Simulated assay, not measured.
Amino acid sequence: MLATVAEAEPLVEHWRRRFDASAAAGIPAHVTVLFPFLDVDLISAAVIGDLTTLIAGHDSFAVRFDECGRFPDVLYLAPTPDQPLRALTESIATRWPEAPPYGGQFAEVIPHLTVAHGQPSRIFDEVEAELADRLPVTATISSVSLFVSDGQCWRPHANFPMLGASSNTPPRQPGSVSIHNS
């Protein structure tokens, strides 16, 4: 489950193609909402319906990427605010406790947009220096996308619009959720 950030793509695409294997596998610039999710064989119409309702209850929001951050093996752009992303993760993980964020590896999940992964510090320093002059990037997060893998490539499977807490009953008309079958 990803919040794609098309607005960041011109800034990070070059670096992600070089230093983030997920880009080559078909994943666009994004902030992870929940990974791993359910196996594709478990994604039924009921799961899609529950995701539609759950995500529709969240408001879209503006986010700004002002600076880079680092984990031991990741250089990333830090989103501000990050609370709406944390709320999305928490709501989906609460509904599907069998799919904890990052397999339960981390006590705290920190929203981030990965730019480079698994590189030496000098590469992170170089990329960060290049990015610093081109920040900030602003974006609007208005949906969450479910990507699925065939073992080599990732592809979008469904997109769930964020309609806002004021929408008591999300629309169920055709087209309210895009499901991609390949």
Rank of each mutant, 00 (worst) to 15 (best):
D133M: 11
T52C: 12
A25C: 10
D59C: 13
T89C: 12
V31M: 08
L163A: 08
A3S: 00
V137L: 05
S178A: 13
S178D: 11
L51K: 12
Q105L: 15
C153E: 07
H180G: 05
T89D: 11
S182R: 06
S60I: 07
D66K: 14
V144K: 01
D125R: 04
E130Y: 11
R122G: 12
P36T: 04
L163P: 07
S145D: 02
S178P: 06
V33M: 01
F65W: 12
W15E: 05
P100W: 08
A129M: 11
G151M: 06
L34R: 10
V40M: 00
E7N: 04
R70F: 11
E108V: 04
C153Q: 04
W154Y: 04
Y102W: 13
F124W: 10
V137C: 03
S182A: 08
G26Q: 09
A45Y: 07
P84E: 10
P111S: 07
A56L: 11
W96D: 05
L135G: 01
T114K: 09
N168M: 14
I123F: 08
E13N: 00
C153W: 09
G26A: 08
R64E: 11
F147P: 09
P84D: 06
E67M: 05
P174F: 04
P100E: 01
E9P: 02
V40Q: 03
T169Q: 01
L131V: 05
I43V: 15
L42N: 14
L163F: 07
P161R: 00
L11W: 01
H180V: 04
L113T: 08
H157I: 01
A62E: 15
A6T: 15
A62D: 15
T52R: 15
Y102I: 00
M1H: 04
S142E: 10
M1R: 02
Q152L: 09
M162K: 03
S166R: 14
Q173S: 13
G151L: 03
S166G: 11
H14C: 01
Q152K: 13
P111N: 10
V137A: 03
T114Q: 10
V40N: 07
R122V: 15
G26S: 13
D59F: 10
P120Y: 12
P111W: 10
G164N: 14
H58M: 13
W15F: 06
P36D: 02
T52I: 00
A46N: 12
L75V: 08
I92F: 03
R64A: 09
Q105R: 15
P120H: 14
A107Y: 03
T32L: 02
C68Y: 09
A29I: 09
T114Y: 12
I179H: 05
C153P: 02
A158R: 02
S182T: 09
R122W: 15
Q152R: 14
A93D: 08
R64I: 10
E130W: 04
V127G: 08
S142I: 07
E9S: 06
I110T: 15
